[in-house]
Design a protein around this nucleic acid. Structure first.
Lengths: 149, 149
DNA sequence: CTATGTGCAAACCGTTTGCACACAT
DNA sequence: ATGTGTGCAAACGGTTTGCACATAG
């Protein structure tokens, strides 16, 4: 929040509220989920989008892609660097487990050497069926909807 | 194609043409790119979508997500299993290198044990700046457009 | 001949943009 | 007071759907 005050725009009620909601939600959340958490009287969906874009630019928030075409956001790792992490996502209900490990730094180095690419990074997510959904296999839910994530 | 004849619907001109185009294109391609490769007089964009959905269901084709909100498709690895592969994508022009290795099988086993998830798979793509774009840093292109991929 | 596939137009859904009004500084 | 932020409505782009016509079997 002080970051905001220093580096860019104004500290408005909407922005404060969106950032708080993201903290409260604890998991990667879609703009719509955030808007709902906030309440439409409090802040318009469009403003959520604009705030998220700003926060992303400031590095306060990071975007997660799960491959279903929905943008998700979570509060950025506050560590200066490192603590880069991934997710394990249920294919049924989209429940998300956060994985603290990342083992791909040396793979990236190899790729840089072998293919001449620079600034290499990666996107890695795991997908499976979470324990609850394994139990509930009786009535499988439609996959890919924003479920418990 | 025989696969099609056996397992599902009819073998039509459109479907043959879409599958050929995918073979010819050699790289993960968006529905629009496929439709253009085919020519709009030959086959409507909507039909491309429907064919791709069918092919995906039959396992003839697989969907790639690069995180820019565009679906891309490529001919599925014909091997029974294995030959699961990933991509190295230029952040500027989207040029794609296909990586034949995958090292994550044991990571998946660990996750299954530790979190109780079943049927674990993953999505892993690498992003960087390809050699050409490093040279051309003068006029950087707008990122994220369907470029050379 | 009949069920399945196709083209066209329109719906859909997430996201972005234009514009007039509101508010933090 | 002034420039930035906001809400609303409308645009946008990829994808899906409804329906009448076409065609593979």
């Amino acid at each position: 929040m002080d970051r905001l005050r220093r580096e860019a725009g104004r500290v408005t009620r909407s922005r404060r509220v969106v950032l708080e909601a993201l903290g409260r939600l604890q998991r990667p959340s879609t703009p719509k989920q955030i808007a709902e958490a906030v309440g439409s009287e409090t802040c318009d969906l469009v403003t959520v989008y604009r705030s998220l874009k700003l926060f992303e630019r400031l590095g306060l928030v990071q975007r997660i892609e799960l491959g279903d075409g929905l943008a998700r956001f979570e509060i950025a790792d506050d560590d200066v660097h490192g603590h880069h992490h991934h997710h394990l996502v249920c294919r049924e209900c989209n429940r998300i487990v956060r994985l603290e490990m990342c083992i791909l730094a040396d793979v990236e180095r190899t790729l840089a050497r072998r293919h001449g690419y620079a600034e290499i990074g990666h996107r890695l997510e795991f997908f499976g069926i979470c324990p609850d959904c394994q139990k509930a296999e009786a009535q499988p839910r439609k996959r890919g909807k924003p479920g418990k994530d």
